[in-house]
Structures are given as C-alpha cells and as structure tokens.
Design a protein around this nucleic acid. Sequence first.
DNA 1: TTTACTTATTCGCGTTGTGAACATAAGTAA
DNA 2: TTACTTATGTTCACAACGCGAATAAGTAAA
Lengths: 237, 237
Amino acid sequence: MDQAAFLESYDPAAFERPSVAVDLILMSVVDGAPAVLLTRRDQHPFQGGWALPGGFVGIGESLDDAAHRLLAEKAHMADAYVEQLYTFGAVERDPRMRIISVAYFALIPACAFAAAMKGAPELALARLTLQPGGPVEARLPEGEPLALAFDHGEMLGVAMLRLRGKLDYSGIAFALLPERFTLRALQDVYEAILDTSLNKPAFRRRMLDRGWLAPTGERETGASFRPAELYRYQPSR
Amino acid sequence: MDQAAFLESYDPAAFERPSVAVDLILMSVVDGAPAVLLTRRDQHPFQGGWALPGGFVGIGESLDDAAHRLLAEKAHMADAYVEQLYTFGAVERDPRMRIISVAYFALIPACAFAAAMKGAPELALARLTLQPGGPVEARLPEGEPLALAFDHGEMLGVAMLRLRGKLDYSGIAFALLPERFTLRALQDVYEAILDTSLNKPAFRRRMLDRGWLAPTGERETGASFRPAELYRYQPSR
DNA sequence: TTTACTTATTCGCGTTGTGAACATAAGTAA
DNA sequence: TTACTTATGTTCACAACGCGAATAAGTAAA
C-alpha cells in the first residue's frame, strides 16, 4: 500500500518503458468464408511466417489514430468500420524486445477488400477457419495452413469470436456489405461468420422485424432468375 | 508502403515510448446496486478527485500479471474474476505525460468487497448509476456525484456496459456471489446490473434450465420466514 | 400447540419468437 | 409460350417466455 502510493507518485520516466504497437486485422467475408489480409515476413524472427500488418504508436498519436493511420498506410483505405479488439501484453510475445500490441479489427466489404489488395501487393488474402476449441487456421486459397508469426494466430481467434458474439445484436454485419445488398448476401455473411446454415424464411423475418433494413425498391441485376430486392442499412430504427 | 516497411524495420528504441499503466475497476453489487472502489487523489492533477487504483506495468511483467499484482497490492485480494476491459490511449488523457492505460475489471462478491475495504482504508466504496446514453455517476452512500479523475468515468461506463452485455451468456454473475447463494440473490445481481426488475418465476426457470446451477440441499439461515435453497455454480454443464 | 405471516416454489395460460415445409411470384432462357 | 431457378410470402407446430395465481415451507407470535 505504501509501496503502491510510492509507485503512483514515482516519476515513471525512471522506468524502462515498453514499446506500444497496433496490429490490424483487416477482415472481410469473401466467397462465403471469413478472410483476412496478411503479409509475409522476410526477416527474423518468424522469417517466412505470416503476420498482421501493424506499426508503432507515435508518442503524440492516440491508439485510434494509429489504427486509422495504419489502415491508410497499409491498405490505402480511409473509411471502414474499425474497432479496438484486445491488447496483447505477454512479455515474450516478441522475442526481440518488449512490445505491447493493441489489436484492432477493421471490417471491409468484399469489393473494397479486392480493391485494397490491388493497391497493396504485399498483402495476401487468407481464408480463416475456426476450429471449435482450437486455434484458427489461415490458409491461402487452396493452400496449407499458414504459419502465423508472433501471437497473431491468437489475435485472429479473438477477432473471430468477437465478430460472432457481436453479430446478432449489433449492425456489424452491414460493415461487411456494400451499401445496397440482398437479403441472401446478408445471410451469406451470417453463415460465414457463424459457420452454420440458417433457415431462410426465419432469417428473413428476423432481419425485417428488427427494423434495420430499408427496401430501396431496386433489384439486383445480372441474375438469370428472379432478382432479389436490394436493401439498405438504416441503423437508427 | 515503403514508409510502412521502413517503420517496421526501424529500431523502435529510437522512438519516444509511452508509459503503460493498468487501472483496476474493482466491482461488486452491494445492497442491490453496482459498486466500485475508488481512491481520493491528494495531488495534482485532479487533486481531490476520485480515481481508480492503478499502477505502471513493469518491463518484465505481462499485462495480466500487472493486473493481478495490483489487485493484491491495492486490495489484498488474491482470487477474483479478472478480465481485460479496454485500452485507453487518448494523447491528453493524462495531462502530465503520455500514458496508455489498459483497464481491467475484477468482480468481487459483496462479502469479499467489505473485507477488502477493511484492509485498505484508502479505498472508498462508490455506488454506480448508469444514465441511459450518458456518463456514469459514482457517489458515496448518500452523497453527491463524485468528480472522477482522468478518463476514469469513461472507463466505468465501458465496464458497466461490458458487464451488462456479458451477463446473460456468461457465468459472470456468479463471480459476484459467494460460493453458495440463493436464487433471489442471483436475481438481485441481475436486477442491479441490468437496472430493471425481472419476473421471478421466469428468471428461476431460465436459470435452472440453463443447467449451470447445482442445488446443495442446504437452506439459507437467519430469515424469519421460509428459507430459500442454496445453489452452487457448476460451469461445465 | 396453533395461527398468522412472509417468502420460496410450482402451476397454468396467453403471447411471442422460431424452424420447417410448402405455396406463390418474378425474372431469364429455350 | 413454357420450363426453370430463385426470391418472397404463408401456414402450422413447438418451444420459450411473461405474468398472475396457487401452493408449500419455514419462523414468530398468540
């Protein structure tokens, strides 16, 4: 207690300070499966492993600002749903030095995801599968599970679970869709994140009863059968 | 991108680093209302204001370890449900210097709460009320709302909302109760956190159907009317 | 010993949400 | 015009839930 009071008043400049970084989990749902953008490491540690894009937090920069800056720098995206996920602070999580990492995830519609990959060729798309009770697996399209650097596999697991948990009671799914979308596309997002198949009429009823969807009167185009109506997300009701 | 790769490889020792602290939200439900332990600040900034107990994270100490160490140092408690809440990283949140704070909350049964206060006289109990859409108010028993230091009011708000959100789908409520408890006591915890009154038979049915409760066969004592059965929390079923 | 009293616990009913099967509608392409 | 495919709507059974009331089980006072 006296010790605690002492620490409270002590000049913290005397302590050695950890570095603080932000790691970005750039997520989307592509072809019916959750996906994330990773970069291949060309240096030790974890050379050849796959890592989340990230960077250090500036001394005059808030955590949220750092996340948005990295989003722009790494993926050239200005607008996305960004949310702080969790802070990872194990002592040995980076073998080089003490780095505390604040993980953020950004939800990106599949179309913007593809555009971001064109602008940032060092980013690779990996599909995620969440083993029940186990770690996540990330793999390139038709590839073996990737070796993830640092504790980034753990970060992806936390992100997937957070996404699942918030799916039904928050409008988080709409951040993964373009502005106008069909109910089928919305259901595909739900099924990809929850990794289950859902009953179509029941899903439709639940979504419409929630009052978040506004019909636009427009129809999807390009289908060789009856086109579905396009809806818009209307948060406040 | 080149810039990003540069930053990635750059020696972060060259950057000025923020300090990293842990702040503890020691919560309980006392007399039917959420409560938290605060300390009065005797120095600037926020002299005379009320703050959460906290301290800096050691360079060789994980965030979780720091939280548990502070729990022992500040409240003399070894076992409690401890969970990382959120990381607050606004640049000006501490006017003296850049400090990033990782907030943890600990859930403590009312009886252990009272014991902790005896062992740590600098801690004061404040009752929390969460205004819908507004900030939380913390007040001493029969007192005016307290002036909270730093962004600690915001932290309390996030903690209350997290608690509410996790209440129904996690066994978090049982961390606020002694090992054996009555259904009425459990319902009191729910009503305090959700700030609503609940239907008693329906609550009872829901809880028992969930399969988390094991009857002990014992009865509560000291009541001048029919004593209720004591239950135990049995997580895995 | 009996009675009053208070709360725990259970019961029954109407309402609501949900899953499944099925019927209908609306487009394209042959 | 017809076949085909998917969107959209309807119906029904069933489970969950809120609510009120009835019953049970203790203590304390008469």
